[in-house]
Simulated assay, not measured.
Amino acid sequence: MSRAVLSIGSNLGDRFGFLEQAVAGFAAELVAVSPVYETAPWGVTDQDDFLNAVLVVSAGLGPWDWLRRGQELENASGRVRTLRWGPRTLDVDVVTVDGVTSDDPSLLLPHPGAHERATVLVPWLDVEPDAVLPGHGPVADLVAALDVTGVTRRDDLRLG
């Protein structure tokens, strides 16, 4: 059994609905679902705010299987990849899988930049207070070092 941490986000259309679709797509493997956060865009900042959450999943799947499943859900949501870090209906990132590291350009693990992104780390910390990001250390320490301005917990939106 592998255990993966997946970051999900949306800033186009029915943002919450797309997150719900991602949760439904991983329902059989769900271990934990974080609260939903509204976050300012990262990278390309001239776009709408995102809704973000983290899923912890477990199944007899490898890192590439988690990536494939996430991409299938992105495609089902109508995601179009035109601009790096641009707006999207659904984004599913594989953050880490059992501490495996990969330098394959198609699946970098842990996910590059995850250690600097409050959009990933803050929701992850909610569901796994003792989480460790391989190669970077305890998630609690990483969050403490970040500016979390623009990361707002949306208790009115509940997944799972």
Rank of each mutant, 00 (worst) to 15 (best):
M1V: 10
R3V: 13
A4S: 13
V5L: 09
S7P: 00
G9I: 07
G9R: 09
N11I: 03
N11C: 07
R15P: 05
F16Y: 14
G17N: 09
F18A: 13
A22M: 09
A24C: 03
A28P: 00
E29V: 01
V33Y: 01
W42C: 02
T45R: 15
D46G: 11
Q47N: 12
Q47Y: 07
D49I: 07
A53V: 06
V54Y: 10
V54K: 12
V56Y: 00
A59T: 06
L61G: 01
L61T: 00
R68G: 07
R68F: 10
R68K: 15
R69Y: 00
G70E: 01
E72H: 06
N75E: 14
S77R: 11
G78R: 09
G78C: 03
W85K: 10
G86I: 10
P87F: 04
R88P: 00
T89C: 14
T89W: 08
L90E: 01
L90M: 07
L90V: 00
D91P: 00
D91R: 00
D91S: 02
G99V: 09
V100F: 12
D103G: 12
P105S: 12
P110L: 04
P110T: 05
H111K: 06
A114V: 08
H115N: 12
V120F: 08
L121H: 03
V122G: 02
P123R: 12
P123F: 12
W124H: 08
V127M: 06
E128Q: 13
L133A: 01
L133D: 04
L133N: 02
P134M: 13
P138F: 07
P138N: 00
D141T: 10
A145P: 03
A145C: 03
D147W: 12
V148T: 15
T149L: 08
D155I: 07
D156T: 07
G160Q: 04
G160I: 05
G160V: 05
